Simulated scan of single mutants.
Amino acid sequence: MTLGASADEAIFALSAYRERIVTSEDRTGKADTRNEQVSEPWRVPDDFPHAPVPGVVPGIQPKLLVRQLNGEYSSSFTSEELVARYDACADLAQQLVDYALRKKSALCLTPEVALERVETGLKAKVSTGRWDLTGDEVAWLMKHVRELLLNEASAKKFD
């Protein structure tokens, strides 16, 4: 399954923070440009996976994998990481719907067969490490793709 560069770019964005350039003028009229982290956790729906997959470290004693962020230890995503992962997954879901609709019409597939092919290709890219998605994110993606595909199909019935 080839989705194209835009899908790969969306997945690549999972590992990066979203930043925007904020420009303002100070009292002297000079432009002050700085990077501002975008944090909009309210945009992430409740059913989107919020916790990363726990890591595995060999050894006899139990271990907790954490990282230090701003002087504090954390085992979960930051708000910015969560928003970036959600944005990339939501974008990928729409691209997968468009792909399924194209294949459905070009090959005269049923929606179920088109969804199976999308899911097979998605899982193959994740298992080879080409796309950085957790198992929970893959499950959320396929649920969301099914919903969007059903909405597209029902909208076309009324056209």
Rank of each mutant, 00 (worst) to 15 (best):
A13K: 08
A13H: 02
A13D: 08
L14V: 09
L14Q: 07
S15I: 03
Y17E: 13
Y17T: 05
R20E: 15
V22M: 06
V22W: 08
T23P: 00
T23V: 12
T23H: 02
S24H: 10
S24K: 09
S24F: 01
R27N: 06
R27W: 12
R27M: 03
R27C: 00
T28F: 07
G29I: 01
A31F: 04
A31Q: 10
D32S: 02
D32Y: 03
V38Y: 08
V38Q: 08
E40W: 06
E40C: 05
W42Y: 10
V44A: 00
V44P: 00
D46S: 07
D46L: 13
D47N: 13
D47G: 00
F48M: 10
P49F: 00
P49I: 08
H50N: 09
A51P: 03
P52V: 06
V53T: 15
P54Y: 04
P54H: 06
G55P: 00
G55E: 15
G55L: 13
V57S: 09
P58A: 07
P58D: 15
P58H: 11
P58V: 08
G59K: 11
G59Y: 10
I60Y: 08
I60V: 12
I60C: 05
I60Q: 14
Q61M: 09
Q61T: 13
K63M: 09
K63E: 13
L64Y: 09
L65P: 03
L65Q: 14
L65A: 06
L65W: 09
V66K: 10
V66M: 14
V66D: 06
Q68S: 11
Q68N: 13
L69M: 06
N70H: 12
G71D: 12
G71R: 10
E72L: 09
Y73C: 07
Y73E: 14
Y73P: 02
S74G: 00
S74K: 10
S76P: 05
S76T: 15
F77C: 02
F77H: 07
T78Q: 12
T78V: 09
S79P: 08
E81H: 01
E81G: 01
V83R: 07
A84G: 04
A84E: 03
Y86W: 13
Y86Q: 07
D87V: 05
